[in-house]
């Protein structure tokens, strides 16, 4: 539903075609693309990879964006975190992610 909504908003407001191309810079946002998604085994969790970051998306709507590598200064690896509809965060759904990326 999130992907459909984003596509519909961009179709209406951006004036640009819904044709994501890796080498292009467009003034249009695209939802997570299927060809970047992998499954986190054993959890209701998908992983979306970009160059330097990982976006985890859970079935309850929880999301987290983090760097692929833990910062050496000890700062938080998560750059953005949002709990799902039931209040659980990505860390609640998959506690192993507190120690390492899966």
């Amino acid at each position: 539903m999130l992907c459909e909504t984003l596509d519909q908003v961009e179709d209406e407001l951006s004036g640009l075609p819904n044709k994501p191309e890796p080498s292009m810079t467009l003034d249009r946002m695209f939802p997570p693309q299927a060809d970047r998604i992998s499954t986190v085994e054993g959890y209701d969790l998908k992983r979306l990879d970009s160059l330097r970051h990982i976006t985890y998306i859970a079935g309850n709507g929880a999301m987290e964006i983090r760097l692929k590598r833990r910062p050496k200064d000890g700062s938080d690896v998560a750059q953005f975190s949002k709990p799902g509809a039931d209040g659980r965060s990505i860390s609640d759904i998959c506690p192993k992610l507190a120690a390492k990326n899966l």
Binding site: P22, I37, S38, D49, L51, R69
Partner: peptide, 27 residues
């Protein structure tokens, strides 16, 4: 060096190389 492949066999593959203080990200 870390590597990751999308589930789609025709999907993206990613390589992240950490050497010294440099990070090189490849897709």
């Amino acid at each position: 060096i870390e590597m990751r492949k999308a589930d789609d066999p025709n999907g993206f593959q990613f390589l992240n190389v950490y050497a010294g203080t440099l990070e090189v990200a490849v897709e």
